[in-house]
Design a protein around this nucleic acid. Sequence first.
DNA 1: TTAAAATGATAACATTTGTTAACGCATACA
DNA 2: TGTATGCGTTAACAAATGTTATCATTTTAA
Lengths: 190, 190
Amino acid sequence: MESIKQVIHSMIQASDREMNQFLEDSRVATYQPYEVLAEPGVIPESIFFISHGLVRVIIADQAGDEHTIHFALENQFIADYSGFILRQPGLYYLQALEETQVFILPRKSIEWGYSNMQEGQKLGRLIAEFYFIYHDNRIKNLYARTPLERYNALAEVFPNIHNRVPQHMIASYLGITPVHLSRLKKNNRY
Amino acid sequence: MESIKQVIHSMIQASDREMNQFLEDSRVATYQPYEVLAEPGVIPESIFFISHGLVRVIIADQAGDEHTIHFALENQFIADYSGFILRQPGLYYLQALEETQVFILPRKSIEWGYSNMQEGQKLGRLIAEFYFIYHDNRIKNLYARTPLERYNALAEVFPNIHNRVPQHMIASYLGITPVHLSRLKKNNRY
DNA sequence: TTAAAATGATAACATTTGTTAACGCATACA
DNA sequence: TGTATGCGTTAACAAATGTTATCATTTTAA
């Protein structure tokens, strides 16, 4: 409970009363490695806050192949946020890769926060901006850097990722095959 | 002046007084095709609203090659938003591709809006969410669709783009060479 | 403890994509 | 009007990346 409060306090001013009411309807859940927090086809009705653990975001293409789109770490919010905002069925799997504890914030709480917390809208803005910057950076790197450069810079975005995630998932995140990543590493001259 | 008011009113409630004060320090500017609205290396101090025209967002890689990262159309906000938020030097060129008229909203106005407009933070949240959804969609497509599929779906995101932008810029946006796009189109069997 | 499964490296080969150059056509402009 | 420039297509070839298979090692689970 403390970690989410800390993170929110680092972004906005909120009274204890606001904070407690905001979190009142949240619940804690724990997932084992490879367990699934959310599946595609369902309208997302909650936002997750990861207190510890690691969540992989996956999309499946038409052929059924799965692609790792994102890794979400402790002290971050994660959701199929587009689906949540648009109230459309999600497209992502959210999968724990480690034993992972989350707070589940239902839509009701988010909406309560927007309407009733002094800085609720600001909190929403800052979270959206955080992910905007993450996405923007990612797209910059995609256009302006090679896969190997992106590989070498990965740990800046996901600290310690190489000790927490198998390499083939990293290859998937980079948009290349595991075989190719292995080759690139071999020729990694820096 | 009317178009930006309409767009803002479609997102939030705002009194005439709020709206007029918010826009008080904005100015109108007009750019000819290929003129540049913003360059990398400078901390972005304003947000643009395109009342008509079309702006291309470009990033240059280490080799100096330019990549088209985005097209911004009329009635949209555009900026090097990451740089604006983080107060860091921008990385993008913003280039008009048609005769383009914009409102330039200085940082001062944005901050005034956050502090003084009833729904200022909400406006910021909705704009950040809009671009979040755009980015998210884009990344989904990047992983789950082929370049040809992305080409065929382009006009959904950028209406009439094929009549407004030369094909080699579209190829650049898709992350492929003009020669390759030409080949793909030739084999486009649907 | 042991057997099965997952992981990562590597090789051989196939496919995709990039590079360079040439050409025809349209457009801009002097 | 004529000339230069930009655009899109095509072809030939090169480079990058994917595919499939094999192997050794580590991890997982019975």
